[in-house]
Write a protein that binds this DNA or RNA. Structure first.
Lengths: 192, 192
DNA sequence: TACCTATACTGCACATTGCAGCAAGTGACC
DNA sequence: GGTCACTTGCTGCAATGTGCAGTATAGGTA
């Protein structure tokens, strides 16, 4: 009877809206939630299995021709566990930012390395921002896609993601401006 | 001859400034870099060991009375590996935001749960922002602390961290305003 | 009929986490 | 001078998570 992880509750949450086959469950979470909860594909198959062992979801085998698939369905115990989890305090936001490690060690490399790191950060950020802006537009113009009942929540989350990547891009742009006058990575910032 | 991880390069980077005993190395990284590169304390002891096996750092045993400690030192091969890594593109920024999972599943819980999640996010963000603002002030007023040669880089990284947590706090505050008129978690947003 | 892509997973080696454990030095107070 | 808490300085290990390779069917196109 191991402790449930956030990933388990996430799966439980997906199943609280409707039944899902394992593959589609993995697809949805992988495509839609990696930006806020990055987990290996493998884990997205393991989590519902463990939930089934604990009786929080039930598994049914279906067949399309000779191909089988497992469809999961939440149980009343599962709904209860989910409600209880939603009332707990969330874990702190955590960031993994390899570019910042590059930057902090930049005095061991060249100024070109540093510039290229910041440019890479900016480009990635602009791409991601565009993705979420597209997502936001889609939500505004439609009923919310796969989860119409969550439309109002998607508006909140998309706003965060757009702001997050906008900040990242803006910061990278600002930092590129700051280092523009540097001739090497040891250079102290020029005083105004 | 396993592939080096970002954590290895981080340790290598620390050792490029000066020699470090294993414990202090772990302390420094744990205290100063968890916000951009969160790793278990255990790994901060394993990483230099592996680097030593690969000849990128050398390990020396010292003694204070009957107590022993390992002091690590970077080798020329280590410096070369670090320089090469600094020229590569960094991995994409990645976020782990459990509060957002709570929010996206909020339609399965109460409006109080949602409000309390957002308040928790805001409080944590304000605390973290204050920490980095203190850090920024410290850098401005001193020569940069333990790493005076990195003062100019700390200015850049602190600016990012302050902006990051400011955005998080601002977003949470905005979202709390948005949900203020909601009577339950199913409520559609009122049209303007 | 052949081929490509999507569906639908499982197995396994390896990496990482997190906690418990152990031992010695350091300082403060009584 | 004793003891108590805290810091230094790590290691072992079970449990968990990652990532890649592998297997097989279905559906569409040319």
């Amino acid at each position: 009877m191991s402790q449930l992880t956030t990933t388990s509750y996430l799966i439980l949450g997906m199943l609280s809206s409707r039944d899902w086959p394992a593959y589609e469950l993995a697809e949805q979470v992988d495509k839609g939630l990696t930006e806020v909860w990055p987990r290996a594909r493998r884990q997205l198959y393991n989590a519902p299995k463990q939930l089934a062992e604990q009786g929080l979801v039930s598994a049914t085998k279906e067949a399309t021709g000779r191909r089988k698939r497992t469809v999961y369905s939440i149980t009343p115990a599962g709904r209860k566990a989910l409600r209880e989890w939603l009332a707990t305090d969330p874990k702190r936001v955590s960031l993994e930012f390899e570019g910042m490690i590059h930057l902090l060690l930049a005095d061991q490399g060249t100024i070109e390395d540093l510039r290229s790191t910041l440019e890479s950060v900016r480009e990635e950020a602009l791409l991601s921002r565009a993705v979420f802006e597209g997502h936001m537009e889609y939500i505004r113009d439609t009923d919310g896609g796969t989860f119409p009942e969550k439309r109002h929540l998607f508006v909140l989350s998309s706003a965060f993601m757009i702001g997050h990547f906008a900040h990242l891009a803006d910061w990278a742009t600002w930092a590129l401006g700051e280092i523009e006058s540097w001739t090497d990575t040891q250079a102290p910032r020029p005083e105004a």
